[in-house]
Design a protein around this nucleic acid. Structure first.
Lengths: 188, 188
DNA sequence: GTCTATATAGTGATAGAC
DNA sequence: GTCTATCACTATATAGAC
């Protein structure tokens, strides 16, 4: 059985949130210590180095987020899928003070070891390949305006989501994120 | 005469670069001290607090970047303006290890005082209002595909640029950034 | 597993001599 | 203006008792 320590899970959950709020350098073992209620040395017991912790946080976040994306009903129209994807992306904003953990770590890339960078890249690619399929579907049935290959445009669309979650937090409004799909959906 | 100290200018120039590389928490007065060749206490003479320094860095960067944008020949077509804008944005990538200073600080927002946040917001708005005019021009002459108001789509386009410069660095390729305008330019 | 205690290094910032 | 010297604090990390 894969019984995981509840303390370890608490540490990870708070680490995920703190990275989304303030990034790699913006939180410390002390912050986690106060949130979880154990000493910093206990956190080192579960995660010997900060990079170990952050890598695990990326894996937890990435599995959950990509899992949610892939659980979007495949029978939906391309337009409906994008709407569902947008709702999912809006969830990461939380109370309006968070951004995507992998977008944040992409910004912190200059301070990260290669294995974490690779995990962040995998998250980007996972989103882009799902979006590419949706764009191809929408191109086929004429409900989306896609200039270029679906793979290329999927990269731009995902970048628009990442940038929009950033500016939604910056301006304290969800509308910027919600307006993203409209840029590719054929007006009715 | 507004004669500025050359040491002060060196500090600022290196601060701008370091923020683009590693963000607000990712550089220190010691880093600047070694780069400029003065002691950290001398840096405090010019910039009493780190926030003073970062605010000035935003102003320097913002003036230069928005100045470059507004110096794009207004007689160009919308498509040509977007191409010139893309070239300008590609410049911030440097050797492929930098992202937009204001995009970086937007990610670091959770650690920044309100006056810096406002300066970053102003940079976003300045870019978006210029893009909105270009999109309106392209809508008028039919060379761009713009679904929605030019102001709304301009926010998505700017977000796509911010996200694409992030992923261009993440994957070490400029193509992601270069593909951004194609998503809105009418294929010929 | 969790703790106390500690090591080692880095941080922004200030006082005061020159 | 630039320096030396130093402060108070925080950071990640480790050793070893319980």
């Amino acid at each position: 059985m894969n019984t995981t320590s509840p303390v370890r899970e608490q540490i990870l959950a708070h680490a995920v949130t703190l990275i989304m709020l303030r990034g790699y350098h913006g939180f410390s073992y002390r912050d986690l210590s106060e949130l979880v209620g154990v000493k910093t040395s206990s956190i080192h017991y579960y995660f010997p180095s900060k990079d170990d912790l952050v890598l695990e946080a990326v894996n937890v976040y990435s599995s959950a987020a990509l899992g949610a994306v892939h659980s979007i009903d495949s029978s939906l129209s391309a337009k409906e899928k994008l709407a569902a994807y947008t709702v999912g992306f809006a969830t990461v904003l939380g109370e309006g003070d968070r951004i995507c953990l992998c977008g944040m770590l992409a910004a912190d890339m200059g301070s990260l070891p290669p294995n974490i960078v690779q995990a962040v890249q995998a998250f980007f690619r996972g989103n882009e390949s799902w979006l590419a399929k949706v764009l191809a579907q929408g191109t086929k049935d004429g409900t989306l305006v896609v200039n270029g290959t679906s793979e290329q445009v999927a990269q731009t669309v995902f970048a628009a989501y990442q940038g929009s979650v950033l500016s939604s937090r910056l301006f304290q409004t969800k509308t910027r994120l919600e307006e993203v799909p409209a840029a590719w959906v054929v007006s009715t």
